[in-house]
Amino acid sequence: MRALVIVGHGSHLNEDSSLPVYEHAGRIRETGEFDEVVECFWKEEPSMRHVLDTVESEEVYVVPAFISEGYFTQQVIPRELGLRGPVSRKGMKTVRYAGPLGNFEGMPDVILERTDDLMRAREVSGRTALVLLGHGTDLNKNSGGVVYLNAGRIRERGIYDLVEVGFLDQTPEIGRVVDGVEAENVILIPLFIAEGWHTRETIPEDLGLTGGVTVRDEKTIYYGAPVGTHPSMANLIAARARETMMEQHLV
């Protein structure tokens, strides 16, 4: 039997954080590709410490529902699940640990699906810029690196006049990027897993957004939902697990 374990951050304070993990798990369950699809969290139950005891399958694929490589994917998740590398034996189980979602090759497609959903049936004129918004931190360069990586991959496709990046907690700061970008239309997509305090409060406040569409200073800003809540993320999670299977066959 084959199990997929999706690891989310979760929250002690609100239910929004874990919702995409549950929804993507439900979508993957319906495909029947895995015998079991199980959710676990850092801050909610079941915890990573105990989730593997609830899994009956011998073949277990762990996919972190995190955008960036960093503290959680490299330190917290392996430690809490008791993993020793990409493949760990735990009793009768073989546990394969996939990387985060943001640097996976399918990620630009999910971002573009999000922008398509946002811009469908809207007529725009003039130059259009896609701005990818990351959390970022000066403590870990990988956190921002994944935003640049996706911007570069989308830029290569030549769909938008400009593809830029901006951050909340590192430079370039998102407010300056949006103000400075030379385009009449700005599509702003948060590279976040879930809706929450940042996407609902700090980002709209900091940027002076009045809703999904804000017109100001001869610019129209289209503010999208976080990429992590898009239904296509479920396919990306399953593909991430599938890739881990392929890698192991190669080994």
């Binding site: 139950e45 079941p46 915890s47 105990h50 005891d53 609830t54």
Partner: peptide, 14 residues
């Protein structure tokens, strides 16, 4: 049960 009391059944058993 695992949604009502996550991992409760397996801990109860062990």
């Amino acid at each position: 049960m695992n949604y009502l009391y996550p991992a409760g059944v397996v801990h109860w058993y062990l």
